[in-house]
Simulated scan of single mutants.
Amino acid sequence: MTKSFQPWTNGQVERINRTIKEATTKAFHYTSLEELRSHLRDYYLWAYNSARPLRALKGCTPTGFIVRQWHKPPRYFKDDPGPYFPGTNRNPL
């Protein structure tokens, strides 16, 4: 849902919908809705969070941003977030 009289918000929603569609239904054939849901949950979200730099995070990926925040002073974390993320995001500095 978007706020009234703010067309840029609707444009952002449409852009992310197009990105998801290009990475899923236009690239793969799914035999069921559950197969699409599984692909979104297991693969697409991981790829988006670990491989796509975002302008709002000053060019960091969401995963890299979290790990970078841990390395500043880790006062907001109970434990090291690195093991929760696969790949090479363990030391992004």
Results as ranks from 00 to 15, higher is better:
V13P: 06
R75S: 12
F28C: 11
P83I: 09
P83M: 13
F28W: 15
Q6R: 07
P86R: 12
T24I: 04
F85N: 00
L40R: 02
T63W: 03
A51E: 08
L33W: 13
A56G: 03
G82R: 12
H39S: 03
V67P: 00
L33S: 07
R55G: 01
T25W: 07
T25G: 01
K58M: 02
R68Y: 06
N17A: 07
Q6M: 06
K21G: 00
T2Q: 08
N91W: 09
K3I: 05
T9H: 15
W46M: 02
G59I: 02
F77C: 12
H39W: 10
R37V: 06
N17R: 07
R55C: 01
V67S: 11
P86D: 13
I16P: 05
D80E: 04
P86F: 12
R55Y: 08
R52Y: 01
F65H: 05
L33G: 07
Q12G: 06
T31F: 07
P53V: 07
A51K: 04
W70S: 02
V13E: 04
G11P: 08
P81L: 11
I20P: 00
S50A: 01
N49G: 14
V67Y: 00
T88S: 13
M1F: 05
E22F: 13
K21M: 13
E14G: 03
R37C: 11
L33N: 09
A27I: 06
R90Q: 09
L40A: 07
T24S: 14
W70P: 02
K3G: 03
L40F: 06
E22M: 14
L45Q: 15
G64R: 03
V67H: 00
T88V: 09
R52K: 14
L33E: 13
Y44L: 05
H71A: 15
Y30F: 14
R15F: 03
P73S: 15
S32D: 04
N17W: 05
T24H: 04
K78R: 15
E14R: 13
A23W: 10
N91S: 09
K26M: 10
G11Q: 10
W8K: 11
V13R: 11
E35D: 13
C60A: 02
